[in-house]
Design a protein around this nucleic acid. Structure first.
Lengths: 159, 159
DNA sequence: GATAAATTCACCACAATTCCCCACTACCCT
DNA sequence: AGGGTAGTGGGGAATTGTGGTGAATTTATC
């Protein structure tokens, strides 16, 4: 069992999947589901970087994954006006936190507000990142397109 | 835990990120947010170098990072008119200070004036440096671009 | 050159937030 | 059945952000 886990890790294919409905406590803390935690590389140092997602949710990256994004930013020329703005827009909303002894992270209030998350949170495994949604917002999001799962699959997965 | 932190530091990937709204007191002092302070290398010796940014903000570098900037400046040809002018402009406005016992630095008045910062200051983690903005100026700056966050995120976060 | 004024600097104080630890319940696995 | 793990909640200590005071140093004035 442990062996398989290691193999997958070496291949860099330790991805997040699945769906969990948890609660946000009065302090804004959210537990990271054990199943997802098992996919996090030790390189992440129990640290996660949160930022606004592109669709009204919060994106949560294990530190090692996030650092790949920052590595790309480092290659840009920060003195170039466009690249500079690029860097600021990305980093502006990024905030990091380390798991506490109960495997929770503290979500900044502004992110919770952005995603309209209050007491309940839908935690979504999404490949290299974890997404936090207001459950109702997510249900709405799914409805927004007239396409059925079958139609979308056919389009996206076309080889 | 400490070990991993050191590794990241060795790789030069201890970067600044996030956004903080703090106040500037009557003497021109600004606290450096604890989260940013944690990313500062011990080599910096609690010392920061401030200078004008290229876009109406104040750039704040930990001493060790600033020294890398100076190394680059040394590589320029000071007798080349453009290079010489750039060197003079940066250094003219460069000023250093060490954290006081409350983790604050004193910002020179001319820099505050340059960035139009008065009572409130937006502190931005921007990779190797920290930027100080007038919050309204920054909001204006973000609006000025045709690019949306979604577009930029799609470009950087992809893959 | 002596004194006064102004500025800088180091230190003290406080409220609010954050962090860290402890406790409890429910579920899962063997 | 029971030991272990997982998710939830809360309290107290430590840290953080903010303001201010007074000594030391510098600058200005006579």
């Amino acid at each position: 069992m442990g062996n398989c886990g290691e193999f997958i890790q070496i291949l860099g294919l330790n991805l997040f999947r699945g769906q969990f409905t948890y609660s946000v406590d009065s302090k804004g803390r959210v537990s990271i589901p054990a199943k997802l935690r098992k996919q996090v590389s030790a390189d992440a140092n129990d640290t996660f970087v949160m930022t606004i997602g592109t669709v009204n949710c919060i994106d949560v990256y294990p530190l090692d994954q996030w650092q790949q994004i920052e590595a790309k930013l480092l290659e840009l020329n920060a003195y170039q006006p466009k690249d500079g703005k690029f860097i600021r827009m990305i980093l502006q909303n990024a905030s990091d936190d380390t798991l506490d002894s109960q495997s929770r992270i503290l979500i900044p209030q502004n992110l919770l507000k952005y995603a309209k998350i209050e007491k309940e949170v839908l935690i979504l495994g999404a490949l290299k990142k974890i997404e936090l949604w207001n459950p109702e917002v997510f249900a709405e999001y799914l409805k927004q397109t007239p396409d059925t799962y079958e139609q979308i699959a056919a389009e996206v997965m076309a080889q």
